[in-house]
């Protein structure tokens, strides 16, 4: 997995609550057996005026001029700013794959759905929870200032605005360590395989029917 340490990135505002993973990447793109290439179809139903299907040349499709991520000022955004309960619904990891492939490394919201939140960390992405008031304030700042960037420092656990305001955020210690170092989590767990084997043997003795 790619490490995430620090990022100074353009912010794109998606001013909606409860953005679900069906909206982030519609189901027809889940037919793919690959884990890359979902970026052009991120937010497909909001982003394009026509109906998207796998295999289409997305560069030739009509863009929805009203969708915020299509606006010129947000091209090249690396940080997505959004509202509460982002990523609710399906567990599809295609959602963070699509956002990452689109260019986002950080998502800031007042809350996230659990499975999406967890999936982000597996893909070198950092989901950040800030209070609804701070999120609101950042929305206003983004709106007021073209080219608005935030500086995100995972080590320091801070988000810094262009004015120098610093917002601290929480992150689980294990996730932080793995993300900072871009660690292969399966490899880490494999290092503890002796413990897994001991547990498994005891578990099998206690509940042999689980191993039939």
């Amino acid at each position: 997995m790619e490490a995430f340490v620090q990022l100074n990135g353009l912010v794109a505002p998606l001013d909606r609550a409860n953005v679900d993973t069906d909206a982030i990447i519609p189901k027809q793109f889940l037919k793919s057996i690959k884990r890359s290439g979902f970026g052009p179809n991120a937010f497909d139903e909001w982003r394009y005026l026509d109906h998207g299907e796998p295999g289409m040349d997305n560069s030739k499709r009509p863009l929805n001029p009203d969708f915020v991520l299509n606006q010129a000022r947000y091209q090249g955004a690396r940080i997505l700013l959004t509202r509460e309960n982002f990523g609710c619904g399906s567990s599809r990891e295609h959602a963070p794959w699509a956002l990452e492939d689109f260019g986002f490394k950080v998502v800031i919201a007042s809350s996230f759905a659990d499975i999406f939140f967890n999936n982000c960390f597996k893909n070198g992405m950092l989901p950040i929870v800030l209070s609804a008031e701070i999120v609101d304030s950042i929305f206003n700042q983004v709106d007021a200032s073209v080219g608005y960037k935030l500086n995100v420092d995972l080590n320091a656990q801070t988000v810094t605005t262009p004015n120098g305001e610093v917002y601290p955020f929480e992150v689980d210690a294990v996730r932080k360590h793995n993300l900072l170092n871009g660690l292969d989590e399966i490899g880490l767990t494999m290092q503890q395989q002796d413990k897994i084997k001991v547990f498994e043997a005891q578990h099998k003795q206690a509940q042999p029917w689980l191993f039939n």
Binding site: S91, R92, P96, I115, N118, K122, N123, V174, T189, E200
Partner: peptide, 20 residues
């Protein structure tokens, strides 16, 4: 509970999940 594909692979390889 549901898991993402990275965790599907993790469980396949290790029979375990890292959980809070």
């Amino acid at each position: 509970h549901g898991i993402g594909t990275s965790e599907v692979e993790h469980v396949m390889a290790t029979q375990c999940l890292m959980q809070k």
